[in-house]
Amino acid sequence: MSEPARVLHARLHLLDRQVVRESDDRLLCKVDDLEVQPGDRPYVTAILSGPLALGPRLGGLPGWLMTETDRLFRGEERPGPYRIEMSVVTEIGSAVRVAGRRQDLALERWLTRNVVSRIPGAAGTEEQDAPESTLRVRERWEDRPDSMRLGGLLGRTVRGPSGEVAGDTVDVRLVQDGPLLAEVQQAFRLAGLLIARRRAGQLFGYERGPGLWRPSLLGALVRRMHGEIRYAEWDQIESLDDEEVRLGVAWDRLRSTADL
């Protein structure tokens, strides 16, 4: 265990990546959001997908439409998004690969059964449904009200100890040194927040070292739009209430991203 724990930026390396099933390379879904177990040392517990994960991240009218349409078709009392435990993730690269015999999302199954299988020449529809016995263990995707969504931490206003606006959250830094998940791998712990001085949306990866600011014109432009970028460790954050982030220390005492 001497090698250093893996570090990821949630928005840059995880959110919105393609999820692929390890066994047969089937494209399953996108990482629409991440489920976080709150606490003193919060960590990522699951990948969330489907309209109920994407809708809240989109926000506005399209997000609301997406969420409500999905609710209409769901039977559960408190429906939640499609959920993939982080413990089955085997690789995080240009795609996120997951182990196990995971079912497709409901829309794909419904369309296969009711539309595509009725068109002549539709091969492959019979592979769709798993045998009855595995269907019974299918998890119900119910909402977990005690958990937190990582997407909700992005784009929040950050205030200093005396209440002045310090900046905007642009990404969440994750370090893989959290508690063991299903006794197979360590969880990604939320180590801190990347904060940009000006509200300018995403960083597109240009928060990383200067060697990666290419093409240089674009790198310079994105960094200029954001102003100074600093990094707040989790214990430098006092509270996360009211859709805002309150820092426990002054802006000047935060680390610069150049030291990361």
């Binding site: 089937r26 494209l27 399953l28 497709d104 369309l111 529809t125 769709q128």
Partner: peptide, 21 residues
């Protein structure tokens, strides 16, 4: 590709229902 659905003609049509629809 936006929604992360299985797409393409490299799988049989019945295995990419949302794409073909």
């Amino acid at each position: 590709q936006y929604f992360g659905w299985q797409w393409g003609k490299y799988v049989v049509p019945g295995r990419a229902a949302r794409f073909h629809v």
